[in-house]
Design a protein around this nucleic acid. Structure first.
Lengths: 166, 166
DNA sequence: TATTGTTATACTCTATAACTATA
DNA sequence: TATAGTTATAGAGTATAACAATA
């Protein structure tokens, strides 16, 4: 019979911990939220190192990657897809445009909107960046089999998008 | 024969996406880092709602939870365990002390250090908060079996602490 | 000389209100 | 009236340098 909660701590902790010793974090380690955040931060840490040569932060990479697969998408669409607030998107896309990675075109059907697309330079950059990201993901998941990796992603998606199709 | 990468997109995308339609984010969804971040943010969102009655942010809860299981721990120990930078810990612990949730005592062996411990009020608060956190975790993981939940946590820990004992 | 706790400060990220042009 | 993009700004989170007291 499975129990609902993991054991917290031995009832009689011996002494107060002394400086230099590491602490018992078993309760936090039993939480999905804590572990998901820790894992995300450790991957982002390596991401920042490897992507520095491209001058891309995680959000920049996400935007370029989405535009690579959705040419002509509008700012609003990208913001919705990536949970970016429109005011915070302005400076981001301006920067990418100044770097000649993204161009703005008039939207064919809506004069309010602007169709975004990668430049040739942007397409090349994101292609290389995606290879680098795949490499670092493989390194970070070195302790997982390919099946475990797919399982991990599937379970994470069930947390944040429980109704999405498998 | 398993393939190393997931399919990105159908080679011939039909038309530029129109406003109002959602975008193809399959590449990002194939990344552990992207999914871990999304899952962590969705849990934190609910966390903020449910923990508002306790007046606790995620970092406050983590500190109180660690102190509950490690009475007498020093600031430095808590900072190391939770990856909090010492300068950012000062205001946090001052606030918890002013709320009578944490008390500082002279460290028995090191005059530089301060031994932290929960007050009776703090112990009661963290006990209730931990119950609330367990509840919200169970809700967020409603689509997972108990075995899947344990698997998810194990796989996440292999990402951010690959050398830790299972 | 190294470490604990602290102050001051800067930088990034995220969030809200309000405006314009158009639908 | 509602939406796309924008501006200005505020708040939270995270980061580094430097200091006094103690090891």
């Amino acid at each position: 019979m499975p129990r609902k909660t993991l054991p917290i701590q031995s009832p009689q902790a011996p002494l107060g911990p002394q400086t230099g010793q590491s602490l018992d974090t078993r309760f936090l380690q039993s939480l999905i939220g804590y572990n998901a955040r820790r894992a995300a931060l450790s991957i982002i840490e390596v991401f920042l190192e490897r992507m520095a040569i491209y001058g891309l932060r995680p959000v920049d990479f996400s935007v370029l990657s989405v535009l690579a697969h959705n040419p002509g998408a509008t700012s609003r669409q990208v913001c919705t897809a990536l949970s970016i607030l429109p005011p915070n998107f302005v400076g981001l896309i301006n920067s990418l445009e100044q770097r000649k990675l993204v161009s703005r075109k008039a939207h064919p059907a809506d004069k309010r909107a602007i169709a975004l697309q990668l430049t040739a330079q942007g397409a090349t950059l994101v292609r290389n960046a995606q290879v680098t990201v795949r490499e670092l993901e493989t390194e970070m998941a070195a302790g997982l089999t390919l099946a475990e990796r797919k399982t991990l992603i599937r379970l994470l998606q069930k947390i944040y998008a429980p109704d999405a199709p498998v």
